Amino acid sequence: MSRPLVFAHRGASANAIENSLEAFDLALEMKADGIELDIQTTKDDIPIVIHDLNLRRLTGKNSLVSSLSLEEIKRLRVGKLFVRRFKGPRILTFDELLTWHKNHPVPLNVELKESFLDNEKALKTTIEKCKDIRDLHFSSFHSELLEKAKRFAPNIETALIATKYLNWDQLDQLTFIDTIHANKSRYYRERYLDACARQGKKCRFYNINGNEKYITSPHQAVIGWITDYPQMVREVQQKIQDY
């Protein structure tokens, strides 16, 4: 079995501004196999690379992404208060991210966020522009988004992020879901892992920090780790390979 791939959560977000090109470049320098990122959609149906629906935490502007146009959002800078005022980066569009990806063709984990729930037009356009990209999968807490994604592009991988409402014994009924993403603290348990394996689903786990014992001997259902610390996780994996 090949080792689970290491995805840098929002890029190397422990060392750079999350979801920025700097964070993505740094993640690759840290030997991450792939990038995890988040996308929301603007008022004018343009997908942008940002986690929060409300822009306040990263930009200081107390507005929803979905209430502003791309032009309005591009005026903002992200980062800590004094940094963003003078030299914080602009928020990336998803198209800008895909242009970067052409020169860095690594696996992408693209999380569809809540602003797509009421914007099927933006969802369809986003899915269709990715349907021929190798090693890209869409994840979401919202199963309805993934069901539509699978309908728009049947060959694209979909990953449902587990919540307490997920019935692990009925995963096979989720025919539009290929993979389960789960919080390691709650769900890295034999019963959940075995349920995935039994029903033909794979798993990726997030909040990995590099000191988990099971990184060295992962369950057969595990195909990926999602982490703020890609260098630490890769170093653990490399020690096992060298041994």
Rank of each mutant, 00 (worst) to 15 (best):
M1E: 09
S2G: 07
F7S: 06
R10P: 09
R10G: 14
L21A: 09
A23W: 08
L26V: 06
A27N: 07
E29H: 12
I35Y: 10
I35E: 11
D38C: 05
D38P: 12
Q40I: 07
T42H: 03
D45T: 08
D45H: 15
P47T: 05
I48T: 03
I50M: 13
D52R: 08
L58Y: 09
N62H: 11
S63E: 15
S67Y: 01
L68Q: 07
S69H: 04
R75L: 15
K80R: 14
L81W: 10
R84C: 06
L92M: 14
F94C: 03
F94D: 06
D95C: 06
E96D: 11
L98Y: 02
H101Y: 08
K102C: 08
K102H: 04
H104I: 01
N109S: 13
N109M: 07
N109P: 00
L112H: 02
K113A: 08
S115W: 01
F116Y: 13
F116E: 02
E128G: 06
K129V: 05
I133T: 11
D135Y: 07
F138I: 08
E144H: 06
L145I: 04
E147D: 09
I156W: 02
E157P: 06
T158I: 05
L160I: 05
Y165V: 11
W168S: 00
L174M: 14
T175W: 01
F176N: 09
H181D: 02
K184M: 10
R186W: 10
R191N: 12
Y192E: 03
G200R: 11
F205Y: 12
A221Y: 00
W225Y: 12
I226K: 11
Q231D: 13
K239E: 15
I240C: 08
Q241Y: 09
D242H: 08
